[in-house]
């Protein structure tokens, strides 16, 4: 099992450029990508009180992040750094198929 003492938290932040914001299709893509990582990954609209589990498609759809808002990402676990990088890239490239 993971040694808690080694568990570093990685953070990322990215502006949501998708025209309609975090609607159904982007939410599915983000969730599917997040599930490829072992890391525990959370996201929120910058400044929001609660972090949302990035692997829960229902919760990601419900966050209703608007176009132009900033999404914060944090992750912990063995592949956390790669997970943050991949999710930032997905959002920054407007959820292109190449990034998902």
């Amino acid at each position: 099992m993971l040694d808690k003492a080694d568990e570093q938290i990685f953070n990322g932040s990215v502006r949501l450029v998708h025209a309609v914001g975090m609607h159904a299709r982007p939410a599915v893509k983000l969730t599917k990508l997040a599930k490829r990582f072992q890391a525990h990954i959370s996201v929120r609209v910058a400044g929001a009180p609660d972090w949302i589990n990035a692997k829960s498609v229902a919760k990601i759809m419900a966050m209703r992040a608007a176009h132009g808002s900033t999404i914060e990402i944090k992750a912990s676990g063995s592949d956390a750094e790669a997970a943050v990088e991949a999710l930032v890239n997905l959002i920054a490239t407007d959820f292109s198929d190449e990034a998902s």
Binding site: V28, K32, K35, K55, S56, V57, A58
Partner: peptide, 24 residues
């Protein structure tokens, strides 16, 4: 259906897929 399939795509078990669909 969309949420169940999203969960299934990640290789989740049947119980997990059902639970995600029923979250709504």
């Amino acid at each position: 259906a969309v949420m169940a399939a999203t969960e299934a795509a990640g290789g989740s078990s049947l119980a997990q897929v059902k639970a995600v669909a029923e979250e709504l």
